[in-house]
Nucleic acid binder design. Structure first.
Lengths: 203, 203
DNA sequence: CAAGTTTTTTACCATTTGGTAAAGTTACGA
DNA sequence: TCGTAACTTTACCAAATGGTAAAAAACTTG
């Protein structure tokens, strides 16, 4: 078994290539809508070669979800409990908007998965997201109790931030129809969202 | 050809049964993730019988999207340009929250389709959604110019309403993990969202 | 550089899946 | 009630798809 040996350079690189190709395809076509042949072609490998590196299509998908969840959540982790509350929140919102703009594939990968009931992700939501979320809710509650932010339900506040920021990545196809030819769509969105939450959060 | 004859009672009823079964499955598994056999079993018919009523799986999906888009957009249409602006907006937001609660399958059907680039829906977004959206943006702009609502980008305002309200249907799996055992989740969400937009929109 | 190990390629297979053909059954108007 | 049109069922098929077996090639290391 090679499972316990440390991975070779080729192994590391090829697994990265596979994940990169699979990310775009899963984001665009969903898990069932993506075939191993498509992934193989997108990364210039042959199908059995994928299976050499990942034991199944599902294994690729799960590895992607696991690998990307932590970076996806890093802005939440980056909030400083001792910082200036309003600016910490605005900073978080800015980072989320930036992620929507820079990493729409990741956003859509998770959107697909969660819309469909998170069948391959529920344990990770429970074990990774939930603790982080609870901790962050507690921090926000403290900020509100200290009068630094307007009083509101912290969990729903976070949901609304996720909803609005991720919408720009997840529903981009719709937005492109409704705001065509706007060459600074992303800029307008970022200004709007920041202003919106600034107004909402000011105590 | 029977295409031009008016549909019989059996035809109307069976097409409805097929759509109802397919809606739940497409919402949960996506287009490619749903099989004709699953749809057949869910509505108690045999696979060739589906094909008797719809010429392909794709035809079922497209018919669903078309049939449901107009009801899905009805709250937008129901806004009264001559009404009291703030209450019209809040009324719209309430109806959207109600739709998320009552029709999560529809919400997820559209979410799946749009996240994946709206491959079977772009023409309808263009021909049905776009005109309605433009009209509504114009009304909201007028309301803002009249000083009845706070000034902001009307298109992004509508996006934020869609994002927040539909999030509760589309990301329900995640919310269920993060707010477990909250037996009045929907109520809390509705209060939060209404308060949020009231604060944002007040001139 | 030889022996062993890792990686790639070719050929293949079983299952699933969207869809068809055609016979059988039911409903319905004249 | 009878004939025809609408509908349902059974049996089937070709293509797509996830995955395997095993040989060939390339790389690594003593």
């Amino acid at each position: 078994m090679t499972r316990t040996r440390k991975p070779s350079r080729i192994q590391t690189e090829n697994r990265r290539r596979i994940r990169d190709a699979a990310l775009g395809l899963f984001a665009t076509h969903g898990f069932r809508g993506t075939t191993l042949d498509q992934i193989a072609e997108a990364c210039g490998m042959h199908k059995p070669n994928l299976i050499y590196y990942y034991k199944s299509k599902e294994a690729i998908h799960i590895d992607l979800l696991n690998t990307l969840l932590e970076e996806w959540l890093s802005p939440l982790d980056a909030m400083d409990p001792e910082g200036e509350p309003l600016e910490e929140m605005i900073g978080y919102i800015r980072r989320k908007m930036e992620m929507s703009r820079l990493y729409p594939r990741e956003s859509r990968l998770f959107a697909n998965e969660i819309v469909q009931g998170a069948p391959r992700m529920l344990p990770h939501l429970e074990s990774i997201l939930k603790p982080l979320f609870d901790r962050q809710c507690a921090i926000i509650t403290r900020w509100m109790d200290d009068g630094k932010l307007a009083q509101m339900h912290p969990a729903h506040l976070i949901f609304s931030i996720w909803a609005v920021t991720q919408h720009y990545a997840d529903f981009e196809a719709q937005i492109a129809v409704l705001l065509p030819g706007d060459d600074n769509r992303a800029g307008g969105a970022e200004v709007f969202v920041e202003d919106m939450f600034r107004k909402l959060l000011a105590p």
